[in-house]
Computed example of a mutant assay.
Amino acid sequence: MGTAFIFPGQGSQAVGMGKALADASAAARQTLQEVDEALGQSLSRLMFEGPEDALTLTSNAQPAIMAASIAALHVLEQDGNIRLADKAALVSGHSLGEYSALAAAGVFTLADTARLLRTRGDAMQAAVAPGEGAMAALLGLDRDAVEKVVADALAAGPGGEVLAAANDNAPGQVVISGHKTAVDRAIDLAKAAGARRAMPLAVSAPFHCALMQPAADVMAEALGRAAMQAPLVPLVANVTAASVTDVESIRRLLVEQVTATVRWRESVEAMAGLGITRMVEFGGKVLGPMVKRIAPDIECLSVAGPADIDAVLKAL
Score class of each variant (00 low, 15 high):
132 E>T: 13
82 I>S: 00
201 L>V: 09
199 M>P: 00
206 P>G: 07
79 D>N: 03
224 G>D: 01
156 A>V: 14
12 S>K: 05
287 L>C: 04
28 A>C: 11
77 E>Q: 03
174 V>N: 05
172 G>V: 05
158 P>N: 15
226 A>N: 08
114 A>G: 03
249 S>P: 00
192 A>M: 06
4 A>T: 05
23 D>H: 12
105 A>Q: 01
10 Q>F: 14
85 A>S: 07
211 L>I: 06
100 S>N: 05
98 E>I: 13
105 A>H: 00
131 G>E: 15
142 D>A: 14
187 I>R: 10
6 I>S: 10
226 A>K: 11
290 M>F: 13
99 Y>L: 04
150 V>W: 13
315 A>H: 04
66 M>A: 10
118 R>T: 03
184 D>F: 11
166 A>I: 07
298 I>E: 05
61 A>T: 05
307 A>S: 12
193 A>C: 00
127 A>I: 10
42 S>Q: 05
222 A>L: 13
247 V>A: 09
115 R>W: 01
140 G>K: 15
125 Q>V: 09
293 R>C: 01
6 I>L: 06
55 L>S: 07
258 V>S: 15
166 A>Y: 12
196 R>K: 14
113 T>C: 11
81 N>Q: 14
261 T>F: 07
62 Q>M: 08
199 M>R: 13
177 S>H: 10
